[in-house]
Design a protein around this nucleic acid. Sequence first.
DNA 1: AATTCGGGGTT
DNA 2: AACCCAGAATT
Length: 356
Amino acid sequence: MTARVPPDFSARLLAWFDVSGRHDLPWQHPRTPYRVWLSEIMLQQTQVKTAAPYFQRFVDALPTLRDLAAAPLDDVLALWSGLGYYARARNLHAAAKQCVERHGGELPRDLEALTALPGVGRSTAAAIASQAWNDRHAILDGNVKRVMTRYHGVEGYPGLPAVERKLWALVDEHVASSQLPEHRLADYTQAQMDLGATLCTRSDPACVLCPLQDDCVARREGRIAELPTPKPGKTPPQKYAHVLWAEDAQGRILMLRRPPTGIWASLWTLPQADDAEAARGWFDEHLSGDYAGALALPPIDHAFSHYKLQLQPLRVRAEARGKIGDNDDLRWVAREELASLGIPAPIRKLLTNQGA
DNA sequence: AATTCGGGGTT
DNA sequence: AACCCAGAATT
């Protein structure tokens, strides 16, 4: 299904971008490869409004790729704390080290080398190359998928491999257009994302303002509300766990670092157990105190994309039974120190809300 | 190629 | 509560 691309497609899009695009995003000034890369990683599955303050804080703390590579992982995770998808932070850190070792401390200007970096896939690599160096590569993120499915009337959930394959073919065809000047690939990439984010939105798109409205299939056929095809629904399983909020006489909280893989990898959390008995067992093994007098706090509901988790917090005064502190993955943490640790959002909320 | 992984915000 | 969001890694 090779769809025809009007010769003035990119010209119309760029003209719209010059007037109505976003030209003042934090990573655009200055637009260095490091800042472009960082922004692209932060913006994976994350809206601009959410990522922007994190970006500013991150580059203030770690202004260059070499700063990032030299920083402890805990510092990077702390800067990421609250942003979600923490594998992105670990991959970012690993990729920075890789750039120092293999690419002279710079991002490689090569699509394959970029894709070889952890956390960088085809679309992100193309976004970096086009935005940092105006190289001619097509991206396919959520915004572009939405624009393309509507403009070309592509049916089927865009996350399906077969549909995604069609969409890649389409965006490649668009970017190959001779009407797209060499020096405007960065703008072209940004224009598509801006169009998708600000105008061709999921619900109630502003078609009357769209530079592509005249030849948009969804618009012409009145199928704007049906495209892109929504994700097939499925009910995620409900899981339960208990978390132990143990506090010593000085008001410090016992926290542990999760393993480097799996959920909340490498983040600091409260000790967690599958059920009440296991929680009691963990307490008896590591702590002593008035477990019977523990306070059961209101349960926390947290949703992941593939399951739901309800956490039952139990707050208890305790002291260490053996030595705690000689193990780097389990230690007492003062409240003032919480801000500097990478902590999952629901746990941070629990510790902060129920404060002193 | 298909499946799995995964956190916060919005509606 | 369902759904969305500048996807990548794994199998």
